[in-house]
């Protein structure tokens, strides 16, 4: 047994070493914390959520039980369908969700799993990992995927707002949908203002 684990350890070391000699950089990974990035240009508003998978599904590995699969499936559905509800931009700005893109190995796995099961019942999304890799602009981006392990979930929501001038705040409802979120750093580039503010379950609204 001991021998086996030693072999495994060596194999693992070799494996990582082979992957990248110089890559020993690690991004921060803090459960409960996440980043919400909001950028506006013209009538387009892009919202990016960067979070450890733990915050969304409560675990950080490929789902192994039916229960975990179900949880992840539900979370994925929420993220891809309910963007407007999770991230509430000022009502009077009249924003509509245009596209969603989810970057996450766990979510890709879940999608594939249910996709097979339901014979394409689940509709195709723009955030497909393979499709995404095709239109990669930077080769570094690909490395990034490997580097950030499997545990990060990135969601891109693209909104179209008819009345951008009225876009004054955002109400972060992620806390309600996913109770594991403890605090979210909201960074924004909206109108003339850019800045950062922290949202938490008690203070979900952030003014731009």
């Amino acid at each position: 047994m001991k021998k086996l684990s030693l072999t495994a350890a060596i194999a693992l070391t070799l494996c990582t070493a082979a992957q990248a000699e110089t890559e020993r950089q690690h991004g921060a990974h803090e459960h409960g914390a996440a980043k919400l990035l909001i950028a506006q240009e013209g009538e387009h508003v892009e919202v990016i959520l960067e979070t450890p998978a733990y915050n969304v599904i409560g675990f950080e590995h490929m789902p192994s039980t039916d229960e975990q699969l179900e949880v992840a499936h539900h979370a994925r559905h929420e993220l891809s369908e309910e963007g407007l509800k999770l991230v509430q931009l000022s009502k009077s700005a009249k924003c509509e969700l245009e596209a969603v893109e989810i970057e996450s190995e766990i979510m890709d796995y879940v999608r594939a799993h249910f996709h097979d099961e339901e014979h394409g019942h689940e509709h195709e999304e723009h955030g497909d990992h393979e499709a995404h890799a095709d239109h990669e602009d930077h080769d570094d981006h690909d490395h990034d995927h490997e580097g950030s392990v499997h545990s990060e979930i990135h969601v891109h929501w693209a909104f179209h707002c008819d009345n951008v001038a009225k876009l004054k705040d955002v109400d972060v409802k992620l806390f309600e949908a996913f109770p594991n979120f403890a605090d979210i750093d909201v960074e924004y580039l909206v109108g003339d203002s850019s800045g950062m503010a922290e949202a938490n379950p008690k203070q979900t609204k952030v003014k731009f």
């Binding site: 110089t22 890559e23 991004g27 950028a39 506006q40 240009e41 990016i48 570094d140 490395h143 990034d144």
Partner: peptide, 17 residues
């Protein structure tokens, strides 16, 4: 060129290998 690229470009730089 576009403000929409700021966050993505920031990530690219921060993850520059």
């Amino acid at each position: 060129k576009s403000r929409m690229q700021i966050f993505t470009f920031q990530r690219l730089v921060n993850n520059y290998r």
